[in-house]
Simulated assay, not measured.
Amino acid sequence: MKTSSLALAALLLATFPVIAGEKTATLAVENMTCAACPYIVKQSLAGVPGVIRAEVSLESKTAAVTFDDTETDLTLITAATAAAGFPSHPTEGLANE
C-alpha cells in the first residue's frame, strides 16, 4: 500500500507545473559613465542572494539579470544597484527561463 501511495504522490507532483523558478529582467541603470561602472554594477548584483547571472552593458546602460524568484525579487535587486550608486528600474516585463 505504501508503494502505491508513493507512486501516486509522485505522479501528482509531476503533473502540476512549477510555480517558482528562474526569471529574467532587463534593468535601465543610471549613472554609468565609465568603463569601471559595469563592473561595480555587476558585483552589486552578484551579491544579491538568488541572482544567478548578470550581464551589464555600458553602451546601452542596462543590466540583464537572471534570478531565482523564490530567493529574491526586483525590489531587492534594484536596491542593490542603488546602494552601489547606480539606481535602476525594470525596462520590460519578466520572462520565464
Rank of each mutant, 00 (worst) to 15 (best):
A54W: 12
P49V: 13
L12Y: 10
D69G: 09
K42Y: 03
T3I: 13
L8G: 12
K23N: 08
G21Y: 05
L74W: 07
K2S: 10
S57R: 08
T91F: 10
L27W: 04
M1S: 15
V65S: 08
L8A: 15
M32A: 06
C34L: 05
I77P: 05
S57E: 04
V51N: 01
V29W: 06
A36S: 15
K61I: 02
S44I: 00
L11Q: 14
R53L: 03
S5D: 15
T3W: 13
A7Y: 09
G50M: 03
G21V: 03
T91G: 15
K61T: 06
G50I: 06
E55T: 13
I40T: 15
A36I: 00
R53K: 08
Q43K: 14
A46P: 01
D73W: 11
A9H: 12
L45E: 00
K23P: 05
K23E: 06
A20E: 13
T78K: 05
S88T: 02
T75Q: 09
T62E: 08
A82T: 02
Y39I: 01
L8D: 13
R53I: 00
A14E: 01
A20C: 12
V41S: 06
P38Y: 04
K2G: 11
A10F: 07
A83H: 00
T26Q: 14
T15M: 08
A64T: 15
L45V: 00
L76N: 12
V29Y: 08
T75F: 08
G50N: 02
G93I: 08
V56T: 05
I77W: 02
A7Q: 13
E97W: 14
A28K: 03
L58Q: 09
A63W: 14
L12E: 11
D69A: 10
A9F: 11
D73A: 14
T66W: 14
A9P: 12
M32S: 06
L58M: 09
E71V: 15
P17T: 01
T75A: 09
K42E: 03
P49D: 06
T91R: 14
A95Q: 10
T81D: 02
T81V: 03
I19P: 11
A20G: 11
S4M: 12
T15W: 02
T70I: 12
V51E: 00
A84P: 04
G21T: 03
T15P: 04
K42F: 03
G47E: 00
E97N: 14
T33M: 11
G47Q: 02
L11Y: 08
L76R: 10
T78E: 07
P38S: 08
K42S: 06
T24Q: 11
L8S: 15
G93T: 09
T33V: 06
S88A: 09
L45M: 00
L76V: 13
N96C: 07
I52V: 07
T62I: 05
F16A: 12
A20I: 14
C37K: 05
E30D: 05
P38T: 00
L45K: 01
G21I: 01
L27M: 00
N31F: 02
A7N: 10
K2Q: 13
C37H: 08
V41C: 07
T70D: 06
A80M: 03
A95M: 09
P38G: 07
S5H: 15
G93A: 14
V18T: 12
A84L: 01
V65G: 06
A7S: 11
A14R: 05
S57A: 10
I40K: 15
R53T: 02
